[in-house]
Design a protein around this nucleic acid. Sequence first.
RNA 1: UGCCCGAUAGUAUAAUGGUAGUACGACUGUUUUUGGUGCAGUUUGUCUAGGUUCGAAUCCUGGUCGGGCAACCA
Length: 556
Amino acid sequence: MSEEKSLNFLEEIIEDDIRNGKNNGRVLTRFPPEPNGYLHIGHAKSICLNFGIAAKYNGKTNLRFDDTNPTTEDVEYVESIKKDIQWLGFKWDKELYSSDYFEQLYDFAVQLIKQGLAYVEDSTAEEIATAKGSPTEPGTPTPSRSRSIDENLLLFGEMKEGKHPEGALVLRAKVDLASPIMHLRDPLMYRIKHAQHHRTGNQWCIYPMYDFAHGQSDSIEEITHSICTLEFVPHRPLYEWFIQKLSIFPSKQYEFARLNMNYTVMSKRKLLQLVNEKYVSGWDDPRMPTISGLRRRGYTPLSIRNFSERIGIARRENLIDLSLLEFCIREDLNKSAWRRMVVLDPLKLIINNYPAGKTELMEGENNPELEDGDGFRQIPFSSELWIERDDFMEEPSKKYFRLGPGLMVRLKHAYIIRCDSFLKDESGNVTEIHCTYIPESRSGTDTSGINVKGTIHWVCAIAAETAEIRLYDRLFKVEDPSNEAGDFKEYINPNSLTVINKAFIEPDLMNAELEKGYQFIRKGYFSLDSDSTPGKPIFNRTVTLKDAWAKESQKS
RNA sequence: UGCCCGAUAGUAUAAUGGUAGUACGACUGUUUUUGGUGCAGUUUGUCUAGGUUCGAAUCCUGGUCGGGCAACCA
């Protein structure tokens, strides 16, 4: 029937597991964000993967907040993360928190101490680091390593009870200080933090490290396939070590390459800097690669899901072209966005032979891609119009299909006109152009027999409303700002935002709705910004249309 | 210089020992009342040197290149 689509390597693993009856064919994944920032397009890839792959194999996905570091986390982030996942169109099975397991994790730690596999360390962070050795030299034991089990139990209990200041003691796993895998050189399991946790408050003053929380949480939930990004590959031996020593459910970790995209940054640390240092207006600034930023910019959930599908899943490092994301949103919006006419850079056009004061209503389909145009709207027309300044050239080149002295164009949804003359101000700028219209050329009932090459958009000067338009360009001037010398912020594109205070919009756009895409004909896709107030719409440009003319004219 | 990943067109991603394909990009033509869309087509690739094999992108060995690992972050 349908074309067999090739599987990515994770799907192959899962199909293999199902064939072999592993976990009785059960598939349970999890999406485990730390609530210390907003989700970005890279997380969207992971969300689509985790939720998508589970759904494909009749499994489920838990949402688990990996909240083991109270000093960086906040409920604001928890709420934004939940909203973004739902907006993308996914439903989690259980909403869970690593902090739900603090008691259980503590018991696990006690168990390991009793097994002689964990000890309380009293060296400083620097001393610990030094004693770990280097990749080419083995580490050396600290005096704490030989502490008795009873003393370890006593001290760990004291840590929990808050008898020690931050930094005084940590709990370490006793693995192998000579391991060629640095991660196995007695990693930290617990540290003291006298901090307020966003869920457990002051109940705890010791917090498990990632390595002692993540795998165990997976295991407690009986996650079958714990999918994470490549930077966790070195953690896998430890992940397995803890599970084995604790004799708990053997969740398995698999890694794929995280998404990198050119002309932006994708680390929460850097995104946080952009927000805190006011390079952008917030996490949802339309220039941000965050899901909330893309939403505000006008991206649709479908476009992001399609994007995630197209970029694929592999273990190779990648740098995806922004143009692919743009293709995905154009593809979706072309099929769904209502067409409207807006003049961004206005020039007055007067039709000399059209009766002054007369108005007509022209009819325009909402979307020519859809059946019956997806309905129609009325567009007022009169003898005075606004057209785009770059749709007129005083001395047009050969390939220019628009207006110039003596040239004819079609006014979209209206008449064919011919340019007769134009006016200039004292500094040489064109201020007004005068035309003649062909009465029998009206759209739909054209009997003029005239063919013109160009069609331009316009807005009736009498009926026009106005709006603020925000145009966005890539946030960075270079493809990979993190890879450049110096601070990545030096490479921010100073022209990433252009504000047009007063654009002329056709009246129907006063009814524009949030999170609905509009195509401003010949200009791009736009959506209403949440800063809009009644009677004062603000539009964000989601993405331009492909513009073959811009390329053509750049050549010369 | 210890350990671990990885390497297929500009960018991604398939081919699971048997014709190197697909998408985006680029380019050409065509349609079009959006220089948009659609349609048709062109272009460019298996890191390298050996080996195994009738046959290698795929398996083996060496090399090269790229990335990661020594946070009281996740």
